[in-house]
Design a protein around this nucleic acid. Structure first.
Lengths: 194, 194
DNA sequence: GTCTATATCTAGATAGAC
DNA sequence: GTCTATCTAGATATAGAC
């Protein structure tokens, strides 16, 4: 029998890891589960990824890229500076509702990995940095778009926005309900005086 | 040799669990570590607690009680309704700065335990409920204290407050810095028009 | 009530054949 | 490149003595 196409095999492994690491957490997920879900054998996993940690890092990189693409697409869909400003919380909300309220993969990673010098911790924080920057860009654009928004304190609005997003993610996970995102949206509107 | 005083032994075990579960997480902590840290033997752990999960539940109950006592003390220290309103975020900030920024034990628990029907998940959410109620009480008292605050939307302020606290906790954990709590404090002041 | 010693199980990682 | 079978370490929980 001819060997399977390599890239597809690797993708299947990552896809299995994607679901398992996200839904169960890093430590609660075993390589055996990855094997079963991907339909690939044990040594095959270890030819593509040297360790479980290595596989997790690949998963996080993948997820980070994917979520940021989605979030930026949500921003681009906005037709006004205000809509683009609100796009991040709306995009986060949509993402959460589609995933059974397991919250943010990167927050969960940081909760699991106590050591801030751990590579997986670093990987997760890069995502957080990117989201904060996306929020900040929206605030800056909004401020420049209209004299009405000229008095916005960019630091204050951007960082409060980020805190509200983070709180809404955690609260969604705690309660498995939609109100935290709705509430955050209202509070984020209020930040700019709406 | 006379047997050790039981309650002190049990307390030593819980104290060891307290530090380890909080700083390393539930799954990353082993019974061996609890044994070493408490200076107690393995079977002794299992005479006081039937399983690791049972020990963790005892730890969470302890921690929940202790943190709520601290938080309520912080509220009582406030001499005006406004100070008492701000007490929760200030109390949370103090607690975080004293613990090496490992964040909220209960948030971390919820991140680790994916299943919302798990007993440990339940235990953690009870803490969250209690904090939300404490915040809400402060808002209600503030509103009643002065006509100036009469127009406060209790639901909106209380829930936004909670989201800001949650976001500040997560951001502190991500960055190991104090700005998230300071920012949350300012945003929480702004919620009531200050 | 507490200990030393051990059973048992699980999970990460590897050897060697095809 | 992929597989079956196995090694090894480490973790939870227990048996039996003092």
């Amino acid at each position: 029998m001819a060997p399977r196409d390599t890239s597809k095999t690797k993708d299947r492994i990552i896809q299995a890891a994607f679901d398992l690491f996200y839904n169960q957490g890093y430590q609660a997920t075993t390589i055996d589960q990855v094997i079963e879900k991907s339909g690939v054998s044990r040594p095959t996993v270890y030819t593509h990824f040297s360790t479980k940690e290595d596989l997790c890092q690949a998963y996080l990189k993948d997820r980070k890229a994917q979520e940021l693409v989605d979030l930026k697409a949500e921003v681009r869909k906005g037709t006004t500076p205000r809509e683009r400003y609100l796009a991040v919380i709306k995009g986060v909300g949509k993402a959460l509702w589609g995933t059974g309220f397991r919250g943010c993969a990167f927050f969960n990673m940081i909760s699991e990995i106590a050591d801030p010098n751990h590579p997986l911790f670093h990987e997760a924080r890069q995502y957080v940095d990117a989201v904060r920057e996306l929020i900040r860009d929206g605030v800056i654009d909004l401020k420049a778009s209209d004299p009405r928004y000229g008095k916005i304190d960019v630091d204050h609005v951007a960082e409060s926005y980020y805190l509200l997003v983070g709180g809404a993610i955690m609260a969604s996970q705690e309660y498995r309900e939609k109100w935290p995102v709705k509430r955050a949206l209202r509070a984020i509107e209020a930040l700019i005086g709406d």
